[in-house]
Structure formats: structure tokens, C-alpha cells
Design a protein around this nucleic acid. Structure first.
Lengths: 231, 231
DNA sequence: AGGAAATCCTTAAAAATTCTGGGGGTTTTC
DNA sequence: GAAAACCCCCAGAATTTTTAAGGATTTCCT
């Protein structure tokens, strides 16, 4: 029905959960280690920083390998300029231990990263945190082992939103939206996007008409874009 | 935990399956009517034509309403020019009985319709036929009732493919791909797309370079586009 | 309140891209 | 073996995008 790497070790499923909120990880650990799954028992290790997580992944390469990796998308408060994210850990893990299944967990507000993560990591699971309860957690683990991928209901709806909007934005438009959404000031946009200020104005105006927010301000634009799943 | 419309009727879950292959429907009926689900028994009605399906949906409006509708995407052999598809039935059902959950079933080759169906119907479930076995069928029904949506594994991967390709094609490009994929002759393309023949050539050449099929023929282009989930 | 900075809009010309028709070579079809 | 269809290239025309400059309005900060 399903096979792990070492026949001798088929009794345990090893999971590593990386999240900066230790209490939530304790919850995951509590739930998962009580799950009975086809006769396999589950062991959950945890790490609460990028560095520790990275070390544990690296160390696992030459010993047992984890079967599943739970990764929080946002490992640090957004204002800190730590560039390391769960996504980076996912990319690293894919390279070092490609057979390990990867499940991302993100809060709703990190949704805009889902696109990039689907591209860079192609995870075996994606859970929006408000969807997570003991049952989905258990389901996710089972599905990811037996028949990946597992996307939670809100993750699917975020994906569907992106899929079904037939507005075509090119890379520059998307960059403008992204920078506006993270609070980049208009006058600083030209430093990030290779366009003149007036072109940026034009594109913003154009997008506002696409999103039906003519003559409204930039906030209305990014709200509309968020609703449609662009950021 | 979950609620149907009429408290009195909570003992049965009514399903209508519409598919032109009667034998496969018998299979679904056989499986589903044996499912035990939280104490509810399941009754599966079937229809094997668009017209019959439409009539049954219309008749259900004023009596019992179906809880779930299973719809085959391709109700007729593609060469017949019957314009009626499962998608149309889905749109109709959404209008007449909005509370009925809708699950689409499509064969792999009908994948290009998934985009349009996600837009027009926003179904509660989407199954690719090769994914369907008794277990997924049962899972789909339960998930759709309790916590939709349910997308089968191959449906998800088709969606992911579309999501993650960062090639931007506009409507005209997509129309060209679509018409090529259904066998429209090059010389007839200009009748469907408001462009000169040479522009169509240019766009095809441009897309071939995007898809890495330079100097190959149109077949290579549409195969590449299919692989990337564009059609 | 007062001034500076930032935002938002318009216009018109320059620049870039796309479209078009034409010429011509190769392959497919009957 | 000839007609039809397909594929490629070019250069001018048409269209779209970018840009700079000027000005009106709002926001921010003393």
C-alpha cells in the first residue's frame, strides 16, 4: 500500500515541524503523536527558528530522513528584515532530501506567497492555518503519505481565485502591486521597477480600471487585487 | 456537525449522476449506495442524456432537491456538434437549485475545460476520471457535504500547472491555441480570430519560442501548451 | 496654519511593439 | 505533378506604451 525507505523502520513516521510559535507546535505534536495510522506510530520533532530547522534538516540527511516536514511560511515577524522564510527551508529540503514530503502552513495574510511556493517547492501539502484542526491535520498527514498532494479548503479557494480571474497582468504590473502592498512609497517604486514614474502612474491607472476602482486611491487598488488573489 | 435543508429528511442523501456511459454510472450507484455516512443512507438517481438530466433537475426544484449532482463534463462524443455539455447543466443547476452541491467528472483530455468550469460554475468538487476509485468517491461525497471543495489529485495537479507557469498569454493567443488544439486549419484561423494571417503566424512563432519549440511544427506547440496546462 | 512632500491626473511627443501585406520556399494532399 | 496548405522573413503602417513636463489636490509635519 505504501512504502518508506527502510523496510526495517516501517514502524515509525518521522515528522519535523518548524514554526516560531512553540505552543502551536506543541499542539501539532500532541495531536499527531496520538494518531494511529495503518499501524505506524508517529514521532514529531520540532524547531522554532530558521537556523535550528536548517541544522536539523542537514543532520537528518546522513541518518534517518524525515518523512514529512511541516513548514511555517512566515518564520519571523514581517517587519524584521530576516530574509529567511519557510520557503527557503523548503527549497533547501527539496535539494538535500528530495524524498521528504513537505507541507506548508501559512496564515491567511501570507496567501500571496502561495504562488511562489507552488513554483519553487511544489509542496506535497498546503494548509491555511485557520483550516487546521485535529481532523485536517490527520487527514493531511495520511493523504500526503499515501496520495499527495493535500491542500486545505482555504488554500484551494485562494488558488481558485488566482486561476479564474481572467485579468492579464505582466511581471511589471505584479511587481507594482506587490511593492504597493508591502507599503513601498510611490516615489520609491521606480527604484524597484525599471520604469519611469509616469509609466508607473499609467500602469496603476490602467490596473485601477481593470479592477473597477477608477478614481480611487492605491489602497482600493491593492484591496481589489488581494480579493482577486493577485497578491 | 452538518445540516441539510429539512430536518425531517436527514436520513437520506440524494444524489443525481449524469453521464452518458450507463455502466460507469451503475458503478457509482453501486459504490455510493453502500456507503455508510454518519448514519445517512444514500440514494443515487441517474440520467444518461443532457435532456433527461435537465428534466430531472427541473423537476427536483419543486419537490425534494438533490444534495449532490455528479456531472460528466463531456456528455457526448466530441465530434457530434451537440453544444450541450455538463458545464451547461452545471450553470443551469446553480441557477435553479443553488444549494445543491455540484461535482464535475472529466476525463484527462477534457482538462482544458477545467478553467472555464471553475469560473462559470465554481463546483464543489472536481474529479479526474482516472483518479476515481471507491475510496475517492466516498471521500468526495463526504468532503463535499461537510467541507467543500474536493478536488482529486490529478485535478489539483492540472490546476497547479496552470497556476505556476509564468508565461502570459492574452486572449488571442489562447484562442489560437484552442483552435489549433481542436484541429482548426491554419487558413481558417483568421475566421475565428480577428487578426491577419501573418499576425497569427507571428503569434504562433512567438509562442513557440516561449514554449521552447522553436522551428517545430504546430503540433509540438500544442503539446507543449497542453503540458503546461494552457489547453 | 503654512509649507513641503507626496500623490494623482493630463497632455503630447518619442519609443517600442504589434500588425499587416507581400514575396517566396517547403511540405502535404489529392 | 500541380494545387493547396504551411512556414519564414521583411518593411512600412498602425497601435500601444513610455516618457517628460506641468499642474491640481491631498497629506504630512512642524
Amino acid at each position: 500500500m505504501f512504502e518508506l525507505k527502510e523496510k526495517r523502520d516501517m514502524k515509525t513516521l518521522r515528522i519535523l515541524a518548524i514554526d516560531d510559535h512553540e505552543m502551536t507546535m506543541l499542539g501539532y505534536k500532541f495531536i499527531l503523536e496520538r494518531v494511529v495510522f495503518d499501524g505506524y506510530s508517529i514521532i514529531v520533532d520540532t524547531a522554532n527558528t530558521f537556523e535550528l530547522g536548517e541544522r536539523m534538516i542537514r543532520e537528518s540527511v546522513d541518518s534517518f530522513k524525515y518523512d514529512i516536514l511541516f513548514l511555517d511560511v512566515q518564520l519571523f515577524p514581517p517587519n524584521e528584515q530576516q530574509p529567511e522564510t519557510g520557503e527557503d527551508l523548503g527549497i533547501l529540503a527539496r535539494k538535500l532530501v528530495p524524498e521528504t514530503k513537505i507541507i506548508f502552513m501559512s496564515s491567511f495574510s501570507d496567501n500571496y506567497r502561495i504562488n511562489s511556493i507552488l513554483q519553487s517547492v511544489d509542496p506535497d501539502g498546503y494548509l491555511i492555518k485557520t483550516d487546521i484542526d485535529p481532523k485536517t491535520l490527520e487527514e493531511a498527514v495520511k493523504t500526503v503519505v499515501l496520495n499527495p498532494p493535500y491542500y486545505s479548503s482555504k488554500a484551494l479557494s485562494a488558488i481558485r481565485k488566482k486561476m479564474t480571474n481572467n485579468i492579464n497582468l505582466d511581471e511589471k504590473d505584479k511587481k507594482i502591486l506587490y511593492h504597493l502592498s508591502i507599503g513601498t512609497k510611490n516615489k520609491d517604486l521606480e527604484k524597484h521597477i525599471r520604469l519611469s514614474p509616469s509609466s508607473i502612474e499609467n500602469r496603476k491607472r490602467h490596473m485601477k480600471s481593470l479592477f473597477g476602482t477608477e478614481n480611487e486611491n492605491d489602497l482600493a487598488l491593492i484591496l481589489a487585487a488581494k480579493n482577486r488573489g493577485f497578491i
